[in-house]
Design a binder for these strands. Sequence first.
DNA 1: ATTAGTGCAAAGTATTTGCAAGAAA
DNA 2: TTTCTTGCAAATACTTTGCACTAAT
Lengths: 144, 144
Amino acid sequence: MTEQNAKDNFRSYLATQGLKSTRQRDIILDEFLRAGAHLSTEELYLRLRGQHPHIGYATVHRTLKLFAECGIAEPCHFGDGQTRYESSAGEEHHDHLICTDCGAIVEFENPQIEALQESVAIQHGFRIERHRLELYGRCRDCQK
Amino acid sequence: MTEQNAKDNFRSYLATQGLKSTRQRDIILDEFLRAGAHLSTEELYLRLRGQHPHIGYATVHRTLKLFAECGIAEPCHFGDGQTRYESSAGEEHHDHLICTDCGAIVEFENPQIEALQESVAIQHGFRIERHRLELYGRCRDCQK
DNA sequence: ATTAGTGCAAAGTATTTGCAAGAAA
DNA sequence: TTTCTTGCAAATACTTTGCACTAAT
């Protein structure tokens, strides 16, 4: 999904749900796509605060949930007690390597693993909708 | 790790850290091992409440963190905003299939996936300490 | 006009902590 | 005794919501 696709998806989601397109939503989506990282509500709110001090925390929160509903963002829980949202724009599905020392997050994708997951699910009668794979360890630098 | 191993591990962890073995910790560990599920602090607290109304929520919370520190429990985040702890006793490492409809949790293990994870980590210069794999979808019953 | 969205403050959850009293070493 | 633990209540942290006002359709 490209950035433009994300914007289009969002617009049509709003339209089909009878929701409204607002200035705030546009600004929040722009900043969210530009950041391109794994942002918590708070982090996105703080990034916006400089240029757009009028946008409230609650609006950022509600807008991120909206992004998740329409599939342009994925909620992540990395165990630090915060919900982060990751953009689904500009890339295929991927998983995460997380350094337990410096917190670095590296994305990867591996079709073989995906295929094995599918077969595991079938063995147990499940139909997978989504998955989450996180590898925690030490990155190259932090092994020194 | 067997139940007895878990208890032994816990005892030696306490000893080496200069911590104390207490009646509450024994009771909480027993109940935690007996439950054998993915318990939140609250759920474990409520289970204990009947037989041991004198044990406080904070003690359960602190004891579960202690279990995690010494490796006999694993914290899990399934996205419902609660931290759950899973016993590492009596079984090898495994991952989870989670039904998004009824909430059923099925455990599985797959050495091929584990091996592929390892090779992905090596490609990125990481040394894995632990991982988390969760497949979300609909179980057999909920697909009807 | 009508309906949905915003921003604020307040409420709701889950988690964590300070501290005086109690228990283990 | 000395140090750690407990249980309570209070504090935090994060998320969510009620409502009067504003903006989009």
